[in-house]
Design a protein around this nucleic acid. Sequence first.
DNA 1: TTGTTAGTTGAACGTTCAATCAAGTCAATC
DNA 2: GATTGACTTGATTGAACGTTCAACTAACAA
Lengths: 194, 194
Amino acid sequence: MDSPPTTRDRIVQAAMELFWRKGYGSTSISDILETAKVNSGSLYYFFKGKQELLVAVLEAYRDGIGPALLNPAWNGVDDPIEKIFALLAGYRRALVDTDCFYGCPIGSLALELHEPDPEVRELMAANFTAWTDAVRECLEQADLRPETDVRALAELTLTVMEGAVMQTRTFRDVAYFDRAVAQLRQHIDQLRKE
Amino acid sequence: MDSPPTTRDRIVQAAMELFWRKGYGSTSISDILETAKVNSGSLYYFFKGKQELLVAVLEAYRDGIGPALLNPAWNGVDDPIEKIFALLAGYRRALVDTDCFYGCPIGSLALELHEPDPEVRELMAANFTAWTDAVRECLEQADLRPETDVRALAELTLTVMEGAVMQTRTFRDVAYFDRAVAQLRQHIDQLRKE
DNA sequence: TTGTTAGTTGAACGTTCAATCAAGTCAATC
DNA sequence: GATTGACTTGATTGAACGTTCAACTAACAA
């Protein structure tokens, strides 16, 4: 049923992969061309330049949060709190699978791009919001004390994930990730009813 | 008493400033030369290349954590827990003063450099360790429950700061920082004796 | 057949980059 | 006053970069 990927798709795919692995600045157009097996003219037929390609990549990430991130992580998980930690476990796996090299692609871009265009900045923000909104829904389904600031707690989850990825990558040791997640679990446990 | 800064010092100073504001990759050698008012030959007389300059910058940051970061933040603060939040307030101020553009220089570098040399990676790790060690000392002086994992809690403080800076910069809104810090305070309060 | 549209090709362009180096300065030492 | 050695100068190099473009192909339509 699924037709072979279009040239445009191959370019976006390659850019997603390379921006994740090498970062935006360190990925050259020719890197992308080689990976996607495409000539430069084709790339510039579909995209005005490198930055418009970044926009497409960020849109692809945003649209993939549900199908490519949440659905696999939540397969077979029902408890709303456990869904949150299953999501975090997905990032842990990505770290372990890459020897603690690669973490969250959006987080890396967010700190690498020091003066992003408004469109790029807003797309990164949209990615974060979509992520925390999903966590927020879980928290609202859980039995937390009524006075709990669910928004702040969902944002803290993202905060902890991103900060933990940063330290894990820097120390090349997933134990930093585990200790941070354990602290988050302890914090959330304190907010449960009873 | 303090003599005029040496050429070397001016170069390191300029590089610290520019790596913080523009990032490592986006700072060119000629940016540094202009800022430091130095010719390229002088820079290459003191440093083998851009990366050796990065090493010097990371060493300068590490050596400055006490005198340039902790001492000013802790001026007039005695309570060990309040010292921690005074430190975080310093980062908040930096964000507000720069319209939520610039956060922690080490954190930005840690996510920007995807394949850092071992020496660079270890220096970033040393910066993080020096930071969390300072927080750890505060936590050990505080009256926390004896079963508290003080190391994990100190690392969580760094995690929250870095993650909060990332979101604050992306949303250009310091409220994200404040909500994260409020959650951290709530968590630490839960771990106090009684 | 002829024209039109959508997509592809890859050599070439101008710029910017990190890095080099031969020549020069100047205060201290002999 | 000659010599030394630490430091400075800035034009220059060559590679890598993002981007452009005129020519080309294939499919479909008039």
